Amino acid sequence: MTHFEGVYVAMVTPFTDAYEVDYKRLRELCDRLISGGVDGLVPTGSLGEYATLSGEERAKVVETVIEAAAGRVPVVVGTAAPSTEQAVGWVRHAKAAGAAGVMALPPINYKPLRHEVIAHFEALSEVGLPIVAYNNPHDYKVDLTPDFLAELSRIENIVAVKEFSGDIRRIHDILEKTGLEVMVGVDDLAMEGPLFGATGWISGVPNALPQEGAQLFRLAREGRLKEALPLYRRLLPLFHYDASPQLVQSIKYMMELSGFPVGPTRPPRLPLPAADYEAIKQAFEYAAVSRI
């Protein structure tokens, strides 16, 4: 059984011009993504600026997304936090709110020892929700290698991995060494990943282009390379921004270009230089040639 199949959008968090969470726009975003054909929603991840939210805001964002989804698609909640106790608390909240699962990083505040990573995930697992382990060795100090994931996969509720290393060879090794589902974690492997066995994609740019993202992943999973490749090549310049530290500003601007503005980013994320916005606009206009 596949728990989290297809395109799951790592949702942005809309803000008003006064930097308050725009819950009305958040509900509209849920409807837009679901009607665009995505398979699941992932609030309060890095792209959702979780670290800038108060506890009350973060809880309300999760509850709003689950209520707005209304069972139409599963919701997998980002649970990153400075301590294991806090992360467990967010898993408990997700379960109580009706989430289908959670996305969980290893400890994020320092470089933990191997047994500490295992204990962290064991504590999360005890809550009783399916877990997508998030491997992001670029931004954090732990690399969940295929061998390490083989060990972690023995923990009862770890069922999948969001693979963000950017190394396509990892997908083959994970599938060979574990029973985990692999979810592509970087947008610029959104075609290669499903071609080689990934069953899911936790995506960024489909916040702005949900139909295109859903179509691309479906074509690649079906092996329809002749149809997938032209679409992928049009989207690839945009997809590269998903792996940039400025991904939030970039994707929120793409959403503005798509006719669905979601407000600013919260400091410390500030507006990008004008040249960066111009480059994103050119990439978006190039992608628009293939608009569905």
Rank of each mutant, 00 (worst) to 15 (best):
G6K: 00
V9F: 03
M11N: 05
T13Y: 02
T13M: 02
Y23K: 07
C30F: 05
I34V: 13
I34S: 00
L41P: 01
S54V: 04
E56M: 14
A59Q: 12
A68D: 04
V77M: 01
V77S: 01
T79A: 14
A80T: 11
A81T: 06
A81F: 06
P82K: 01
E85M: 13
R92E: 15
H93F: 14
A94V: 01
A94E: 01
A99N: 01
G101Y: 00
G101T: 05
M103Y: 07
M103I: 13
L105G: 03
I108Y: 03
Y110T: 10
E122W: 01
A123P: 00
V127P: 00
L129E: 07
P130D: 00
Y134Q: 07
N136H: 12
L152F: 03
V159R: 12
V159I: 12
A160H: 01
E163R: 02
G166Q: 01
R169P: 09
H172G: 14
E176N: 15
E181A: 07
D188K: 06
A198C: 09
A198V: 04
V205E: 01
E212K: 06
F217C: 06
E222P: 05
K226R: 14
Y241W: 15
Q246Y: 12
Q249S: 14
S250F: 08
S258H: 07
P261N: 10
V262Q: 07
P264N: 11
A274C: 15
D276E: 15
A279I: 10
I280K: 03
V289P: 08
R291H: 13
R291S: 13
